[in-house]
Simulated assay, not measured.
Amino acid sequence: MAKQPAAYPFPYSKAAQLDSRINIARPVIDQTLAPIVDAYPLPEELDLDFMHGVTAKEDNEAFVCTNAQSIIKSVPHLKHTEHFIPGCGGNRIVLSVIAPQAPTSATLPALYRIHGGGMIAGDRFAGLTELLDLLKCIECVEYRLAPENRAPGPADDCYAGLVWMSEKATSLGIDPAGIVVWGVPSGAALAAVLCLMVRDRKAPAIPIKAQMFISPMLDDRCQSVSDRQFEYGSPWCGVSDCMAWAHVTGEGRGSDEVSLYQAPSRAKDLSDLPPAYIDTAECEVFRDHAVLYAPKMLRCGSTCELHIWPDAFHLFDGVDNLDVPLIHAAIEARQTWVRRMMQPIGIDGDSNLLL
Rank of each mutant, 00 (worst) to 15 (best):
M1N: 11
M1S: 12
A2F: 00
A2V: 05
K3E: 15
A6T: 13
S13P: 05
L18D: 02
S20T: 06
I22Q: 02
N23D: 14
A25M: 04
L33P: 00
A34R: 08
A34T: 03
P41S: 09
P43F: 00
F50P: 04
H52L: 10
V54N: 12
F63T: 14
N67E: 02
N67R: 08
Q69G: 06
I72E: 02
K73P: 01
L78V: 13
H80Y: 13
E82F: 07
F84R: 14
I85M: 07
P86I: 06
G87Q: 03
G89P: 03
I93D: 09
V94Y: 06
L95N: 06
S96Q: 08
P100C: 00
A102F: 12
A102Y: 12
A102T: 15
A106C: 09
A106M: 09
P109S: 05
A110L: 06
H115W: 05
G122V: 05
L131A: 06
L132E: 02
L135Q: 09
C137V: 05
I138R: 10
I138S: 15
E139T: 14
E142D: 15
Y143D: 10
R150P: 02
P152T: 06
M165L: 15
S166E: 01
S166L: 05
S166P: 01
E167Y: 09
G178I: 03
I179F: 04
V180H: 07
V180I: 14
W182R: 11
V184G: 10
P185W: 11
L190R: 04
V198G: 11
V198S: 10
R199H: 07
K209S: 12
Q211N: 03
M212F: 10
M212G: 04
F213W: 13
S215E: 13
P216N: 03
D219I: 08
D219N: 12
V225I: 13
V225K: 00
S226N: 06
Y232W: 15
G233R: 01
P235I: 10
W236S: 10
G238T: 13
S240T: 15
D241S: 13
D241N: 15
A244F: 00
W245Y: 06
A246I: 00
V248R: 08
D256L: 12
Y261H: 09
Y261V: 11
S265H: 12
R266I: 01
L273K: 07
P274R: 04
I278C: 04
T280M: 07
E284S: 04
V285T: 15
V285K: 01
R287G: 02
A294H: 13
A294T: 15
M297N: 08
M297D: 01
R299Q: 06
H307Y: 05
H307V: 08
P310E: 05
A312Q: 07
F316Y: 13
D320T: 11
D323Q: 15
V324H: 08
P325V: 04
A329M: 09
A330S: 12
E332W: 08
R334C: 02
Q335L: 08
R339T: 01
Q343I: 04
P344M: 14
P344F: 14
D348H: 14
D350Y: 08
D350E: 10
N352S: 09
L353F: 05
L353T: 06
L355N: 03
